[in-house]
Amino acid sequence: MQENENCKNIKASRRDFFKQSSLLAAIALTPSAVINAAQQEWDEKVASAIEEVSVQLDVNGIKHSLSIEPRVTLLDLLREQLHLTGTKKGCDHGQCGACTVHVNGNRINSCMTLAVMQEGKKITTIEGLAKGDKLHPMQEAFIKHDGFQCGYCTPGQIMSAVACIREGHADTEAEIREYMSGNICRCGAYPNIVDAIMEVKKGGKKV
C-alpha cells in the first residue's frame, strides 16, 4: 500500500513537470502581457489572457462542458484536462496510432484533431471500453494472447482492433494486418495481436 502511494506521487510529479515545461515552451510564443501574467501566476492567468472557446463533449458517456484554447488537440484534452491518461501520446504526428480513440464510433488519431472540432461528438477512450470490472472481450483476448510487451501502444491497438472488427475488416490475418497498419508496436507483438483479434472475430461476440 505504502509502495503504491509512493508510485502515485512519482507519477503525479512527473506529469506536473511536463505541464510546467510545456507552459515554459508556450511562454516563448506568447505576447509580453501574457508572459507577465504567466510569470506571476502560472497557468490560470495565461489561460485567461488567451482567447478560449467553449466545447461540449461526451466522453465515455459523461458530458463535459469545457473552455479550452482552440489549439488543444483532442489527445491533450483527454490526457491533460480530463486526466484520461489511458490514451497515449506516442509520436504526436499521426504516425503511430497510440492515441487512437473512437469518435461517434469511428477510430481516429486523437493527436491530429483539435478538441474544438469535435464539438457535440461522442468520444470513447480505452477507459470507456470495459463495463465496470468486466473487461471488453478484446482486452481479455490481448491478455490471453500476450498481445503486448511494454504496453504503451496497447490502448491504441485495442481501440483500433475493436473498430477493425466493427468495420468488417477482420476476416483474414492479411486483412487484419492491413487494417491495423496504423498502429505501430515497437516491441513487435504483431503476431499475438493478430491472434487476439482473430479469436474475438471468430468468437462472434458483439464488440
Partner: peptide
C-alpha cells in the same frame, strides 16, 4: 493511402 484512422478523418 494512409491508415484506417487517418482515412476516417
Amino acid at each position: 493511402g494512409a491508415s484506417a484512422q487517418l482515412r476516417n478523418m
